[in-house]
Computed example of a mutant assay.
Amino acid sequence: SKRMVENNVTLVPTLLVHQFLYEHGFPVWDIYADEKFDKLKEVVKVHKENIKVAYDEGVNIVMGTDSGVIPHGHNLNELLYLIDIGMTPMEAIESATIKAAEFIGKDDVGSIGIGKCADIIFIEDNPLDDMAILTKPNNIMRVFQDGAEVKNRYGLM
């Protein structure tokens, strides 16, 4: 981890995938699921410990996702795992927004401002108080993508 900090390396972990598979099992088509499941518990534990050490040592961490491995719609649970390793709720959100944009060299996304892409969500409660609200689609009241409203929970589009 110290070398990662020295070399300005960004870590993009995906804690969610292994945890999800541990809690829900491998896909039914995976003929090696039984063989892999015993190892999975150790993978979840070691992965979390390693990411926590990296965070504690100051490694730049950007929220990862590997949604193709698990059913879509679960990737914001990754924020909960980042908080679990020690990030503050704001740090977790920034890892998925402004820090992710900086990592890929984009200055027109990741934050709100004049001249930036207008992708934004409005939610019922404050995720800084309870990040889990972002993991439930019904808590997302409105969604704007490229400046156009694409979801309005109240049907007012």
Rank of each mutant, 00 (worst) to 15 (best):
R3C: 04
R3V: 06
M4Q: 07
V5L: 05
E6G: 10
N7C: 02
V9C: 13
T10F: 10
T10Q: 10
L11D: 04
L11T: 09
L11W: 03
P13K: 02
H18F: 02
F20G: 03
L21I: 15
Y22K: 10
H24E: 12
H24N: 15
H24M: 14
P27V: 15
P27A: 02
D30G: 10
D30T: 13
I31H: 14
Y32C: 06
Y32S: 11
K36T: 13
K41N: 11
E42M: 04
K45D: 15
K45T: 15
V46K: 02
V46G: 03
H47A: 07
E49V: 06
E49T: 08
N50G: 00
I51E: 07
K52T: 11
V53N: 07
V53M: 09
Y55T: 09
D56L: 01
G58E: 05
G58V: 04
N60F: 00
I61G: 12
I61D: 13
M63F: 05
M63I: 03
T65F: 02
T65R: 11
T65V: 04
T65A: 10
D66E: 02
S67H: 10
V69F: 11
V69L: 04
V69Y: 08
I70G: 14
P71F: 13
P71S: 08
P71Y: 14
P71V: 11
L76E: 05
L76S: 01
E78N: 08
E78I: 10
Y81C: 04
I83Q: 01
D84Y: 11
I85C: 05
M87V: 01
T88R: 07
P89M: 05
M90D: 13
A92W: 13
E94Q: 08
E94I: 09
S95M: 13
A96Y: 08
T97N: 15
T97Q: 11
T97F: 14
F103W: 09
I104S: 01
I104W: 03
G105V: 04
G105R: 12
K106Y: 07
K106C: 04
K106M: 00
K106F: 02
D107M: 14
V109N: 01
S111T: 02
I112H: 03
I112F: 13
G113S: 15
G113P: 05
I114N: 12
G115R: 05
D119H: 03
D119Q: 03
I120Y: 08
I120D: 09
I121Y: 01
I121K: 00
F122C: 04
F122D: 03
F122A: 11
F122R: 04
D125W: 04
D125T: 01
N126D: 14
P127T: 00
P127D: 00
L128N: 14
L128H: 08
D129W: 09
M131R: 12
A132M: 08
I133C: 13
I133T: 15
L134Y: 14
N139K: 05
I140N: 03
F144Y: 12
Q145N: 14
Q145D: 10
Q145F: 12
Q145R: 15
G147Q: 09
G147Y: 06
A148L: 11
A148I: 12
V150E: 08
K151E: 02
K151T: 00
K151Y: 03
N152L: 13
R153K: 15
R153E: 15
L156T: 12
L156S: 08
M157T: 06
M157V: 09
